[in-house]
Write a protein that binds this DNA or RNA. Structure first.
Ligand SMILES: [Zn+2]
Ligand SMILES: [Zn+2]
Ligand SMILES: [Zn+2]
Ligand SMILES: [Zn+2]
Lengths: 159, 159
DNA sequence: TGATAGTCGTTACATTATAACATATCAATA
DNA sequence: TATTGATATGTTATAATGTAACGACTATCA
């Protein structure tokens, strides 16, 4: 349950590690890790930030990889569906998964100032929400947990 | 921490109680509970469902209370800001608060079939997410917790 | 090689949300 | 009550986000 995103780290290695794991995952599941899909994941990895679909499209477009919305939405759908990226509901935005190496229910800490995203893990469905669901007879299929606030560096800058 | 939304109940009383409390809250805080604002809350209360802004606008419009998007978005902003309604991020939709009588951090159980919404309460910020935030030096200002799945009656219908 | 499923490029459109500005109303006080 | 500053509303226009649909292309495998 390590939190990634606000601490500094070897980011080039971080990116290439993630791309390697993603490549393996796609190979194992016989998924096509096409140029557009790979590039979108790279773009998301490059920032540890939430990016809007149209922000990503702008980059793709400048590289000749597609200029129409469906191109990026399809790539994002693929990445999200297979757990390589996550959608941040509170921002209508997307971020690369920071825990590619294991199954998880992601939870996010999102800086409202710089949009940096830290992904952590939560056993939320086993906690109070799980109890409430059970007692209501509700079957949970998917959980969104997002905390918005100030990251350490933005909090420091404001002080 | 009672969950409301999937159980049957005296709905007329439920609505008028909520409107009464909302009226009191506005009076206490010297907020203007104008006709549009009140009517939007009524519409949300009438269903225990997530409704899109444009769904609400359609009703308002048919009643001569305003026909342009800003009318409904302003009313929703007011209701959300003062805790009388909540935004459901995962659906880009809105629902009346079911716990007007006390401060709370809402969590939602949302049926993906009928869009019924049950609001429950969670101490999420004190749980694992709170720990993760603290250890990352992140200041939580707002938390979104939404579980999507099947409500009892939709689960029954599918079986 | 042909059949099949998956992917891509593109056009057009749907849905959700805001900016901006003029007008109207409210609430406190001079 | 008349003034006035803050709040709320009406309206137009547009921004931002997301999809449906269709034909062409490509990978995969029998
Ligand atoms: Zn993840
Ligand atoms: Zn920040
Ligand atoms: Zn509530
Ligand atoms: Zn249902």
């Amino acid at each position: 349950m390590k939190t990634i995103g606000f601490d500094s780290h070897n980011h080039d290695a971080c990116i290439s590690d993630a791309l390697g794991i993603a490549t393996d995952i796609c190979a194992q599941q016989k998924l096509q890790f096409t140029p557009v899909r790979r590039r979108v994941l790279e773009i998301l990895l490059h920032e540890h930030r939430a990016m809007g679909a149209y922000d990503i499209l702008e980059v793709l477009s400048s590289e000749g990889l597609g200029s129409q919305p469906p191109v990026v939405y399809r790539a994002l759908d693929f990445l999200v569906k297979h757990g390589l990226a996550h959608r941040i509901e509170g921002l209508n935005a997307y971020t690369a998964c920071a825990h590619l190496d294991h199954e998880h229910v992601p939870a996010f800490l999102i800086c409202r100032t710089c949009k940096a995203v830290a992904e952590t893990d939560t056993g939320i469905a086993q906690g109070r929400l799980g109890q409430a669901a059970a007692s209501a007879g509700f079957t949970i299929e998917k959980v969104v947990v997002e905390a918005e606030g100030l990251c350490p560096s933005c909090a420091g800058a404001a002080a």
